[in-house]
Structures are given as C-alpha cells and as structure tokens.
C-alpha cells in the first residue's frame, strides 16, 4: 500500500469545509505546522478542530482562527491567544473545554474501539453537567464518550514509508492518540526514511494507524516560552 505522498497539498486532499479534524501538539510543540499552513491556503471554513490548544495569534491554529475558518474548538486550554478569546466571548466561535486527561483518553478510546469510559475528572464541576454519574470504589465518576475525526493530522520526528512513526521528546504529547482516532490519518514528519531503517523496538506509532505520510518542507519549531538559566 502506497502511503507516501509528495507534499502537503497531496496529503491534505479530500479535507473539506465543515469537517472534524484532530491536530496533534501541546502548545506549539509537536504541531503539524506545514499542514496547518496549507489548511489556511485551502480556504476551508466551518471546521471543527480537536486540539489541546489553539496556537498563538500568528502561529499554529491561531492562523486558522484569524481567517475565521474554525467553527468549533474542542480543547483543554486556550490561553495565549487574543483572537481566540475575542471570537469566543463574542459568540462567533463555539468552544468545548475538556479536562486534558479526558481529552487524551477520549481520543485514545476513539481509536481503540471503546465508545465511552468513566473518569473522576470533572465530577462536581460544570464539565459534568448532563453526564451520567456512577460510583466506583466509593467515588463518583462521570461518563465521557470517545472522539474520532474525519482526518487526524499528526507531526512526528521520523517516519518510514510504511507509516511507522517516532516522536521526539515532549513533541509526542497528543500525536499518538490522535493518529489512532482519525478515519484518515496524515503524518507530517521531519525525516522520511525507507521502510526497514527504523528500529521496530523504537517505533511509537505503528504504521497501521497512518494512511498518508510526507516530509514537511520546513519546520520553524517556534518556542512559546523561552526560559533559560545563566551559565
């Protein structure tokens, strides 16, 4: 099966307005930046985006927000983005805020064939409104449902032509679960190698979860909070 596509244009073919898209990353770390820039160029609108964060004003998903291309965001934390806050408070943007662990597990469940699960996170808060509550081990838990997407777009450090992926450091974050939960999963990698070159012991995402893979043209890898110490 041929999974390798030549560039971001071919990779994102078939994504249409009003679809639901998952995008990996935590803050600006491990986001599929080449794909996001092309989503902007495609001029799509009405998108539902599932992503832990919403980028900053001029990078990451912030670029899609600027063009008002997103209808709904499903995230755990959306600070650091003025345009996001403006659109949310004015009601232009629908926002579903989910505890971070529940978001990760809902994506994992979506990819793993688990339709729903009980978690203690959010019990007694507004997150629990309208959700079934059950006691397990003497403690209340709320029912959370799985998330899937028409397309999942993930970013990896290395990938091979069979779609196997290796992530680097904390750029792994949501990428492995989202890779599992996409009906079509697109992997954007820094380095694409022939099949057989990656050590099978070191692969994080098995290629079975990946339908398309390409090597990104350039990675800016912007740092959101540059913190250092003196030598």
């Amino acid at each position: 099966m041929k999974k390798v596509v030549k560039d971001k244009v071919e990779a994102l073919t078939g994504i249409e307005s009003n679809m639901t898209i998952m995008l990996g990353g935590f803050g600006l770390c491990g986001i599929p930046e080449n794909s996001i820039s092309h989503l902007v160029e495609m001029g799509l609108s009405g998108l539902t985006c599932i992503s832990n964060n919403a980028g900053v004003d001029d990078f990451g998903l912030g670029l899609l927000l600027q063009g008002k291309q997103i209808k709904k965001m499903i995230s755990s934390y959306v600070g650091e983005n003025d345009e996001f806050e403006r659109q949310m408070l004015s009601g232009e943007l629908e926002v579903d805020l989910i505890p971070q662990g529940s978001l990760a597990e809902r994506c994992r469940a979506g990819g793993a064939g688990i339709p729903a699960f009980f978690t203690p996170a959010g019990y007694g808060t507004e997150v629990a409104e309208g959700k079934e509550v059950r006691d397990y081990n003497g403690k209340p838990h709320i029912l959370e449902t799985a998330l899937t997407a028409d397309f999942a777009i993930v970013k990896a450090w290395k990938g091979d032509t069979a779609g196997n992926l290796i992530y680097k450091a904390t750029a792994r974050n949501f990428n492995p679960m989202m890779a599992m939960a996409g009906k079509i999963t697109i992997a954007e990698v820094e380095e694409l190698v022939p099949v057989g070159e990656l050590n099978p012991n070191e692969i994080h995402t098995p290629g079975i979860f990946v339908q398309r893979i390409f090597q990104g043209e350039k990675f800016e890898q912007r740092i959101e909070q540059r913190t250092t110490r003196q030598k």
Binding site: F26, C29, A169, T170, R172, Q221, E224
Partner: peptide, 25 residues
C-alpha cells in the same frame, strides 16, 4: 533551548539523567 522539550507551562526545560518521555494518555 529545544522547541521539542517543554513543560506543561510551555517553558523550555531540560531532562534529568534517567528521564522518560511519553504521550498524554
């Protein structure tokens, strides 16, 4: 600084000897 190595506050960090990385789930 390494853009791929941050903490939950999105600050650049380092890893100690014996550190391990994992996914959000």
């Amino acid at each position: 600084e390494d853009a791929d190595l941050i903490n939950a506050g999105k600050q650049t960090i380092t890893a100690t000897k014996g550190a391990v990385y994992f996914d959000s789930a």
